[in-house]
Amino acid sequence: MKEEIPYIRVAVSYYKIVKRPLTSGDSTIILVPWNKETIIADHGKDYLAQIPQYDGFCCIPSHLEYQLKVGTFYNQYHELEHHPKQGDCSTILYFLQHIFREQYELGLDYIKILYEKPLQILPILCLVSTERGTGKTTFLNLLKLIFDKNMTLNTNDDFRSQFNSDWSNKIIIAVDEVLLDKREDSERIKNLSTARLFKSEAKGKDRQEIEFFGKFILCSNNETSFIHIDKEEIRYWVIKVFPFSNTLNCSSEQFFEKLKLEVPAFLYFLLNRSFHTKNDSRMWFTPKQIETEALIKLKRNYKSTLEKEMLDILQTIFEDQDLEQLCFQINDVICSLSNLNRKAYSLHKIRDILVSSWGLSATNSSYVRYIIFADGTISKNQHKGRYYELTKKRFDEIYC
């Protein structure tokens, strides 16, 4: 048998293909830059002619017709370790039934799309629960078993870092214990979820524009504010996960081993299973199909810093003055914010919350004006102008 060459040459650089040990006992294959002179010292000069040569790197995701060499380029997407094989996958299906519950068929479609159509854009999948022992992390580990080196588990800081080359060519970018509560985080992840091109950057190297096909999966113990989601947003699929009741009479380690052993049979099952849904939108699933109570709750409960400060001011006035109805102008809110040394906000941002988020409309007449001062006192006087009217009942709905 011909000895396998553990080196490649890409353009003018040499790399050694090595297996890096993992704490699990497994290993992962990586490319390590290797010195040409070292190769000659170890194997002789004639050995260089045997090393496979490529013009450059590419990243072409495919699980059913994988190619390591695409034209004259070396494919950095990895071949899956597991291949379809007929058998029993009842443990995996049992577990996925727990995760997706009434959306079980949609969940199977989601994984089938990842496997068969890796270039298809998909919604941002979020698994949330304030309770422990729900199986969120196990779900990520199951996908890691399937997609292996083509999936990465990131932290919040990894996602925010300018250096992103380690995850920019993965099909799944998962963040466990996610807390991306800044608006710029939300905007970035939304844009990436539907992006075709992406600026990849590594330390010490120039940024490169690459094709992007990554799908985001977020897990959080915070059900209401782990990420900013606008009311009209349609790119998120948020699932409330409940505690997992393992009825198979085995330990967590044994359960995970069952999942691992069933991966080939599960891939066979996916290939031979018909889609339950059709490709009816840019992200395959329609907004109606992936709308859940958890998504509605997240949209309803998420509030910006400005909105929280406005609610605090109005609540103070409602309670201090024992009101059932409160009238105020935008300048009244700005004045109270200023007196309390809060950050300055524009009229436009406050009006947007009052009109777009709270559904209020302005009236032009006389009203009783309330202003909070730094010492906590509240002034009260008659005023005239365009004001907004808010009942205590409506305030309680917004506040909750």
Rank of each mutant, 00 (worst) to 15 (best):
P287G: 00
K288P: 00
K288R: 12
I290M: 10
I290R: 05
E291V: 08
E291R: 11
E291H: 10
E291K: 09
E291T: 14
E291L: 10
T292L: 04
T292H: 00
E293C: 11
E293P: 02
E293S: 15
E293W: 02
A294S: 00
A294C: 03
L295E: 02
L295I: 05
L295M: 07
L295Y: 02
I296C: 03
I296H: 10
I296Y: 03
K297H: 09
K297E: 14
K297Q: 13
K297P: 00
K297T: 09
K297G: 04
K297V: 10
L298I: 02
L298Q: 03
L298H: 04
L298A: 00
K299H: 11
K299V: 08
R300H: 13
R300K: 11
N301C: 06
N301K: 13
N301V: 08
N301Y: 09
Y302W: 07
Y302M: 07
Y302C: 03
Y302V: 09
K303N: 13
K303Q: 06
K303C: 09
S304Q: 01
S304M: 07
T305H: 09
T305F: 13
L306R: 05
L306Y: 01
L306H: 03
L306E: 03
E307N: 08
E307S: 07
E307I: 11
E307W: 07
K308F: 11
K308N: 12
K308I: 15
E309F: 05
E309S: 14
E309L: 14
E309T: 15
M310S: 02
M310G: 02
M310Y: 05
M310C: 11
L311T: 09
L311H: 06
L311R: 06
D312Y: 13
D312G: 11
I313P: 00
I313T: 04
I313H: 06
L314D: 12
Q315F: 05
Q315M: 10
Q315G: 08
T316F: 09
T316A: 10
T316S: 09
I317Y: 03
I317T: 03
I317C: 05
F318G: 06
F318N: 12
F318L: 07
E319M: 09
E319Y: 02
E319V: 13
E319A: 07
E319H: 08
D320S: 15
D320I: 15
D320W: 01
Q321D: 01
Q321I: 09
D322G: 08
L323Q: 09
L323I: 11
L323H: 03
L323D: 12
E324D: 12
E324S: 12
E324G: 12
E324W: 04
Q325W: 02
Q325S: 13
Q325E: 15
L326E: 08
L326A: 03
L326K: 01
L326I: 11
C327G: 10
C327T: 12
C327K: 08
F328W: 07
F328P: 04
F328M: 01
Q329T: 14
I330A: 01
D332I: 01
